[in-house]
Amino acid sequence: MPNPIPATGAGGTSALSIVLFAGGFDRVHYALVMASAAAATNRKVTLFFTGRALRALVHETEPGVLGWHDLDPADDGSTPVARDRYFATHGLATFEELLEACVAMGVTVMACEMGLRALGLPPGVSLRADVPVATGGVVTFLNEAPGGGAMLFV
């Protein structure tokens, strides 16, 4: 008789680390879908934002930055706001709903210090106050990622 799949995942671990380096709205939105679903199944989840995906964490009152509204267009060419509105009218979770769920379920959110500099954002840029964001580099992220856990790049 084959061994059943452990409740903690096919590999026997409960950790999921997601690196968000692309800034397309659909990619960032779906990473939040995956993170919230994994957290809902009692997995330890870390989201590591870098590159253009970091725009999703920048507070919208920063000069010239519109937060997640400033992400790259969705895969269908629509603006992030239009795509999010489409999701809302079709009963799908919106960006804010998913991010709020991730925060409520204890997903660790990290912002890459190098990525913030690469985007030309000033030191001490204001990140979202409603999301506990740890800043660090790749080494910090890798040191904190549980060994044997799954790691995805989006």
Rank of each mutant, 00 (worst) to 15 (best):
residue 95 F to V: 05
residue 117 R to C: 07
residue 145 A to R: 10
residue 30 Y to W: 12
residue 122 P to Y: 06
residue 83 R to L: 08
residue 130 D to L: 10
residue 38 A to P: 05
residue 70 D to A: 15
residue 11 G to V: 09
residue 58 V to M: 01
residue 35 A to D: 01
residue 123 P to T: 14
residue 96 E to H: 03
residue 98 L to R: 08
residue 145 A to K: 03
residue 56 A to F: 08
residue 62 E to N: 06
residue 81 V to G: 09
residue 43 R to D: 05
residue 107 V to A: 07
residue 2 P to M: 09
residue 120 G to I: 02
residue 64 G to S: 07
residue 56 A to Q: 14
residue 49 F to G: 00
residue 106 G to E: 08
residue 147 G to F: 06
residue 61 T to Q: 09
residue 16 L to F: 02
residue 149 G to H: 06
residue 3 N to H: 00
residue 150 A to Y: 09
residue 67 G to M: 14
residue 28 V to R: 10
residue 95 F to N: 09
residue 112 C to N: 11
residue 37 A to V: 09
residue 34 M to V: 12
residue 69 H to G: 12
residue 84 D to Q: 13
residue 31 A to I: 03
residue 88 A to H: 09
residue 145 A to I: 01
residue 23 G to M: 06
residue 93 A to H: 02
residue 17 S to V: 03
residue 66 L to W: 12
residue 90 H to F: 06
residue 146 P to T: 07
residue 37 A to G: 01
residue 43 R to Q: 10
residue 21 F to A: 08
residue 106 G to A: 08
residue 126 S to P: 00
residue 69 H to I: 00
residue 42 N to H: 11
residue 16 L to V: 12
residue 12 G to H: 05
residue 74 A to K: 12
residue 128 R to A: 12
residue 35 A to W: 07
residue 68 W to A: 10
residue 126 S to N: 15
residue 53 A to G: 05
residue 1 M to I: 11
residue 80 P to K: 11
